[in-house]
C-alpha cells in the first residue's frame, strides 16, 4: 500500500503538484478580480460623463472619456482646501501619535516600573471603548477648551492611539536589553537610547503604524462631523459626504472626489509597502 503511493508520487507527483498550483492560481485570480472590480468601477466612473454613467458598467470607449468630473470637483467646491485640511490634520496627528506611541511603547517594553501591569490592563480595556460613548462629554470639554470648530479640536483628542502603544511595545520587546545597557554604559541618556537604539530596531513597526494611523485619521468621520462647523475647515470625508447630498445625481464628480481622496493613502502604501507587512505583523505574531 505504502509502496504504491510512493510510486505514484515519484512518477506523476510533479504534474499533480503543478496542476494544483494552476487551480489555486486561477481561484486566486478570480477572487482578486472580484475584489478589484469596485476599485476599477471607481476609476472608470470618475472619467465617465453623466450620460454615459449608466450606459457603461466600467470604462467607456477612450474617445468618450472625460476629465470634466475632476474639473467640476474643483470648481464646484473648494476641493483643494479640503485636501489641504485633511493633509494637515492627518499628518500632524500621525507625527504626534508616532512620537507618543513609540515613547509609551518603549517605556512599557524596556522598563520595569510600578503600576506597569495596571497600566497595560487599562490600555487593553480602553481599546474596547466605543468612541461614541464619549461624543457628548468630549464636545462639552472641547467647548470649555475653546477648541470647537478648530483643527486642534480634531487633532488633540485624537492623539492617543492605544493600538500604537501596543504595537510598539510588542516590537520593542525584541530589543536586546544588552544594547540598552551598552548605551547606558556609553553614557547615552534614556531618551538618546530610545532615539538611537530603540527606534531604528523597530523601523518596520514605524512604517506599519504610520500607515495605520494615517488611514485612521484620514478616514475619521464621526468626530469631525461633530466638531467642525465652518466649511473652510472640513476634511475630505465630511466634504465628500456633503457632496452626496449636494449634487445628488452628479455621480461622476462624487466618484472623482472619492478617487482623489483615496489616492494619498495608496501612495503612502506603495512607499511603505516593504515596512508595512513585516511591521504590522510583528506585534501580532509574537503577541
Amino acid at each position: 500500500m505504502k509502496k504504491k503511493s510512493m510510486m505514484r508520487t515519484a512518477s506523476g507527483g510533479f504534474d499533480r503538484q503543478a496542476w494544483t498550483t494552476v487551480v489555486i492560481w486561477l481561484t486566486l485570480v478570480s477572487v482578486a478580480l472580484i475584489f478589484l472590480a469596485p476599485l476599477v468601477y471607481l476609476v472608470a466612473a470618475s472619467v465617465k460623463t453623466m450620460e454615459d454613467f449608466h450606459r457603461y458598467s466600467f470604462f467607456p470607449p477612450i474617445d468618450r472619456m472625460t476629465l470634466s468630473n475632476f474639473a467640476s470637483l474643483f470648481s464646484q467646491m473648494d476641493f483643494g482646501r479640503f485636501l489641504l485640511n485633511s493633509l494637515f490634520v492627518t499628518c500632524t496627528t500621525v507625527t504626534l501619535q508616532l512620537l507618543m506611541a513609540s515613547l509609551g511603547g518603549y517605556a512599557l517594553a524596556c522598563y520595569r516600573f510600578r503600576g506597569q501591569q495596571g497600566l497595560m490592563l487599562l490600555l487593553l480595556v480602553s481599546m474596547m471603548i466605543p468612541a461614541p460613548v464619549m461624543l457628548a462629554p468630549l464636545y462639552e470639554l472641547l467647548f470649555h477648551l475653546r477648541l470647537i470648530d478648530t483643527h486642534a479640536g480634531l487633532i488633540v483628542p485624537g492623539l492617543v492611539n492605544v493600538l500604537g502603544v501596543f504595537l510598539f511595545r510588542q516590537a520593542m520587546l525584541n530589543i536586546p536589553m544588552d544594547l540598552v545597557h551598552a548605551g547606558r554604559v556609553d553614557g547615552a541618556g534614556e531618551f538618546g537610547i530610545y532615539w538611537h537604539v530603540a527606534l531604528p530596531v523597530v523601523r518596520p513597526t514605524i512604517g506599519a503604524f504610520t500607515l495605520i494611523a494615517f488611514m485612521g485619521s484620514w478616514n475619521s468621520f464621526l468626530w469631525p462631523q461633530v466638531v467642525l462647523q465652518s466649511n473652510e475647515l472640513f476634511t475630505l470625508p465630511i466634504a465628500l459626504n456633503q457632496l452626496v447630498g449636494l449634487y445628488n445625481d452628479d455621480y461622476g464628480a462624487l466618484m472623482a472626489g472619492t478617487l482623489l481622496a483615496v489616492l494619498p493613502v495608496v501612495l503612502l502604501f506603495f512607499l511603505l509597502q516593504r515596512e508595512f507587512i513585516s511591521g504590522l505583523t510583528e506585534g501580532a505574531v509574537k503577541g
Binding site: T95, L98, G207, T210, L211, F214, L233
Partner: peptide, 26 residues
C-alpha cells in the same frame, strides 16, 4: 535610520500647515 515614513509625514504636516497659514480661513 527610522525609515521614510515619519519624515515624509512630518514634512507634509509642516508643508500643509504652511499652506494653510498662507490662506487662513475667514
Amino acid at each position: 535610520p527610522m525609515g521614510p515614513a515619519p519624515l515624509l509625514v512630518f514634512v507634509l504636516a509642516l508643508l500643509s500647515a504652511g499652506l494653510l497659514s498662507l490662506s487662513p480661513p475667514e
